[in-house]
Amino acid sequence: MAGTVFHAPLIRAVPEFELAAIAGSAEAAALIADPAIDVVVIATPNRSHYPLAETALRAGKHVVVDKPLTVTSAEAVGLIALAAEQKRMLTVFQNRRWDGDYLTVKDAVRSGRLGEIALFEAHWDRFRPAIKPGWRETPAEGAGLFFDLGAHLIDQALQLFGTPEALTADIGAQRSDAEVDDYFRLTLHYGRLRVNLSAATLIAAPRPRFAVYGTGGALVKYGLDPQEAALKAGIDPRSPGFGEEGPDLYATFTGADGAEERIPAQPGRYVAFYEQVAAALCDGSPVPVEPADARAALRIIELARESARERRRIAI
Score class of each variant (00 low, 15 high):
95 N>Y: 14
250 Y>Q: 11
109 V>Y: 02
180 V>C: 08
41 V>H: 11
149 L>Q: 11
108 A>T: 08
173 A>S: 15
292 A>I: 09
221 K>M: 14
315 A>H: 03
154 I>N: 03
69 L>Y: 00
109 V>G: 06
58 R>M: 11
284 G>M: 08
312 R>I: 00
178 A>G: 12
243 G>P: 01
255 G>N: 06
159 Q>L: 13
137 E>C: 03
278 A>S: 07
236 D>S: 04
82 L>R: 01
95 N>H: 13
52 L>D: 10
201 T>G: 03
34 D>M: 05
62 H>V: 08
43 A>S: 15
187 T>M: 10
265 A>P: 00
193 L>Q: 14
217 G>F: 04
299 R>V: 11
38 D>S: 11
226 P>M: 07
26 A>Q: 13
94 Q>E: 13
212 V>Q: 09
118 A>H: 13
40 V>R: 05
168 T>W: 04
82 L>K: 01
211 A>Y: 01
206 P>F: 03
253 F>Y: 15
237 P>L: 01
226 P>S: 10
144 G>C: 04
250 Y>D: 15
43 A>R: 01
76 A>M: 05
120 F>G: 05
208 P>Y: 01
177 D>E: 15
1 M>C: 05
308 A>V: 07
272 A>P: 00
99 D>A: 11
216 G>D: 11
265 A>F: 01
243 G>T: 11
10 L>G: 07
289 V>Q: 07
